[in-house]
Design a protein around this nucleic acid. Sequence first.
DNA 1: GATAAACTTGTAATGAATCCAATATGAAAA
DNA 2: TTTTCATATTGGATTCATTACAAGTTTATC
Lengths: 137, 137
Amino acid sequence: MDLNIPSFLRNQGIKASYQRIRIYEYLLNNRTHPTVAEIYDVLITDIPSLSKTTVYNTLNLFVEKELVEEVTIEGSEMRYDIKDPEGHGHFKCTKCHKIYDVPIQIDKIFSDEMSDFLVQAQFVHFVGICPDCQKDN
Amino acid sequence: MDLNIPSFLRNQGIKASYQRIRIYEYLLNNRTHPTVAEIYDVLITDIPSLSKTTVYNTLNLFVEKELVEEVTIEGSEMRYDIKDPEGHGHFKCTKCHKIYDVPIQIDKIFSDEMSDFLVQAQFVHFVGICPDCQKDN
DNA sequence: GATAAACTTGTAATGAATCCAATATGAAAA
DNA sequence: TTTTCATATTGGATTCATTACAAGTTTATC
């Protein structure tokens, strides 16, 4: 996948500042649903001037422009993930605390009783034990 | 539905203090996914000694004992809802900000790729516009 | 290069949730 | 009933994620 991030951002109506490019790049390369603190802690080593506020501002902008989605699957910190037009759910393992992306059958979720609701977004979260943690019981 | 709350709580291994009874009763009678602040503001008029910490403690206890579930559908405050063994999803209207319970087809959600995951709980949230708000355009 | 707009930065402020020590309650034993 | 002891409640202090704001910096356009 050879995405030109600066022009991609500009296409979405976002000025491609260095900070924004690096934050988007981090989200692309780290599909681990990072928190603001995690993103900041990694990027500060490369961008010594980086402010946490910039990370917050940038992520809020990305969410507003629908490039990124918020993942509130547990814990006190918001997590972020590149937005997937297909839509996917999240699974959090209670043992290793890893968060997995899982495919969901979007269309199957809607029930008849919901036909009058205009659904603009849906979020599906699971909590349980992942295959790895079931093995080493 | 004539539930005897004190004995219900005791059956769940919870001491039925006056505060706990009133908080559980509030959740039963107000299926509006209230926040701690909302519960506190209403009950404080009846229980002048009530502490916000007690509301937090009690709700955390109910969640731990699986009588109540946390609803994190948007906003900075946690919301709480009586736990429904059937399972249901939540729909938040972006116009009137009301939160609706919606039925979901639990079994349909799971895809084959998830067969190795042990799912202990699932949460389905929708965001969009409710039927009422679609009418008064 | 000048000018204005937009972006970044850092500190201060907000506010939800938790911690903790003191007090109150209530069930069981004497 | 009184004593005892575990448990619950209270409220003020604290934590910490997030936002607000003002000043400084960068970038684009003329």
